[in-house]
């Protein structure tokens, strides 16, 4: 035969299980466990019980109270969860997310960031130099004869005082070697200026990354390895890279670099992406003259240098057809490169 407490407990559990809402649940709690609840009433009756009965009933009482309390807790949690998700079921999850107003970095900045990141992986530090330069840093020190066509007023912007806007970032090679002895391992991102008629592929100002590595035993193989790594990281590992002998006054031997990749729009066509070469001994000699020392002894030190056109690389990489987009700063253009 069931003890009345057990009957009471089962009735409570049934009522709790059937409670449709929090109010019904609360009513059940008050009815069974409240101060004057029916289960609570049994603790009052305890003292009226015999010594033998008391522990039995006491145990039963505790168990019943615990079971009912747990059932209440569980039922209440279930009801809360149901009402919560019930309310949320109405939400139209197809509505757009809160729009963000992220801006965008200029594609040239993104190109520079990528390129700089790759060279930093190889242990190049950054270097810099001024845009307004003297002829010595831009030409003489770079083994460019006084009558070289590049010095032409037709090709180079001059200031009234005879200084000029650097026509390449190679000036930073000289600035760096003037201020520090070998070994040198730097890249110099920066602007350069040429007196070109502006069209789809030319602008008065463009952006380069210059590189210079001077150390003992630096070779064409090192130059090749460095730029092959860079270009394959940039354009993809299956990019074909071709070094083609060329002429620059400040490197000997000199090369232009072409790449070819199916991933690019140019497809099977070689496209020129950089100029490079081994630092001409005459450049070291001229730097030594300026330094009044023999720090850059061309017999002891060799080096490579390169120049990468950032506008051109960005145009290739982002498939931008006209260099003029870079300077126009049209938001419709800039936002395309938000990432």
């Amino acid at each position: 035969m069931m003890h009345p407490l057990e009957e009471l407990r089962d009735a409570a559990l049934a009522e709790i299980a059937g409670a449709p809402n929090e109010q019904a649940l609360e009513a059940a709690r008050v009815r069974y466990l409240g101060k004057s609840g029916s289960i609570s009433a049994w603790s009052e009756q305890m003292k009226t019980l015999s010594k033998e009965e008391r522990p039995v009933v006491g145990k039963l009482l505790n168990q019943s109270r615990t079971a009912v309390a747990a059932a209440l807790e569980q039922a209440s949690e279930k009801l809360r969860a149901a009402s919560e998700s019930g309310a949320l079921a109405e939400i139209d999850i197809s509505l757009p997310g809160t729009p963000n107003e992220l801006g965008a970095l200029h594609p040239l900045t993104q190109m520079l960031d990528r390129a700089i990141g790759l060279f930093r992986r190889m242990g190049f530090a950054l270097a810099e130099g001024p845009d307004v330069e003297d002829e010595w840093h831009c030409f003489d020190a770079l083994n460019t004869a006084p009558d070289h066509p590049a010095r032409n007023e037709a090709d180079t912007f001059y200031l009234p005082d005879g200084r000029l806007l650097r026509t390449h970032t190679s000036t930073v090679q000289i600035r760096t070697m003037e201020s520090a002895g070998p070994p040198i391992r730097v890249i110099a991102p920066g602007a350069a200026f040429r007196r070109d008629e502006v069209d789809a592929t030319h602008s008065a100002q463009f952006h380069q990354i210059e590189g210079l590595y001077v150390d003992e035993g630096v070779s064409v193989a090192d130059l090749k390895g460095t730029l092959e790594y860079f270009l394959r990281e940039l354009f993809g590992s299956d990019t074909a890279v071709r070094f083609r002998p060329h002429y620059f006054p400040f490197t000997e031997p000199s090369f232009e670099i072409d790449v070819k990749s199916k991933a690019l729009k140019s497809g099977e066509k070689w496209i020129e992406v950089a100029g490079c070469g081994m630092v001409h001994p005459a450049v070291f000699e001229e730097v030594n003259r300026a330094r009044h020392d023999a720090a850059y002894d061309p017999e002891k030190w060799t080096g490579f240098a390169f120049g990468l056109g950032m506008d051109r690389l960005a145009m290739i990489l982002f498939d931008i057809p006209d260099i003029r987009f870079f300077a126009q700063n049209d938001l419709r253009f800039l936002r395309q490169f938000a990432s």
């Binding site: 190889m122 530090a125 064409v220």
Partner: peptide, 28 residues
């Protein structure tokens, strides 16, 4: 040397890895 490499062929020169440590510069 340039004349030699023009005919020798730069394709025959294997690229090598000379990466090394560099201190952070003020430009960095």
């Amino acid at each position: 040397i340039e004349e030699v490499v023009r005919v020798f062929g730069i394709n025959r020169i294997e690229g090598s890895n000379r990466s090394c440590f560099s201190a952070v510069s003020s430009a960095d």
